[in-house]
Amino acid sequence: MSTVKTHKHAFHFDSADHEYESSKQGVWLFMVTEVLMFGALLMGYMIFKVTMPETARAGAEYLSWQFGAFNTVVLLFSSLTMALGIYYIRLDKRKAAQISLGLTLLCGLIFMCVKYIEYTSKISHGLLPGAMFTNANETVNLPLYFSFYYCLTGLHGLHVLIGMGLIAWIMIRIGKGHYGSNHWTGVEGVGIFWHLVDLVWIYLFPLLYLVE
């Protein structure tokens, strides 16, 4: 096992704890911006759902709730492993932490694969957003449903990818001995981000796949 570096806090903080609390607050503020960004888009979708319930119902017919449910379980499990990653690093069990984070990364990958299968099957049926829609179904405004579907899941998928990148970066840093029981700010920050990605999916799943 490589040596654990002792973390030295930046000059403008009083202590490592001071730095930790400040950084974490910064992460929470960043999460606020994420909630509002996703929330605003979701609001656009809710308005669509309220004003054109028939179209929303017709669109949801094309979505497979089994895929959605499977992905929900995958993401929930990844949240568990992420949380366990933080748990292990705080106990200085760096190998276990890396395994947990590796599982999280794997879950992210599975999620994206399922997403890919869903996307390709839709695209092959011409179920594309807005003006690119070529499916024969003539339900009024149906292309708009897919605009929302792709925007919401696409933005979410992008966040999954970013989160995976961050997790990989954290795993490398753990390997280099940057984190341990006295300093785990980065791991926790990435964790909060990953849980937020999960949080968004918790709303997307019923609203897109289940509700009629």
């Binding site: 054109m52 807005g130 003006a131 009024v140 292309p143 929302f148």
Partner: peptide, 9 residues
Amino acid sequence: IGIFDPALG
């Protein structure tokens, strides 16, 4: 995508 375009609803 048509979210703001009345022609697409």
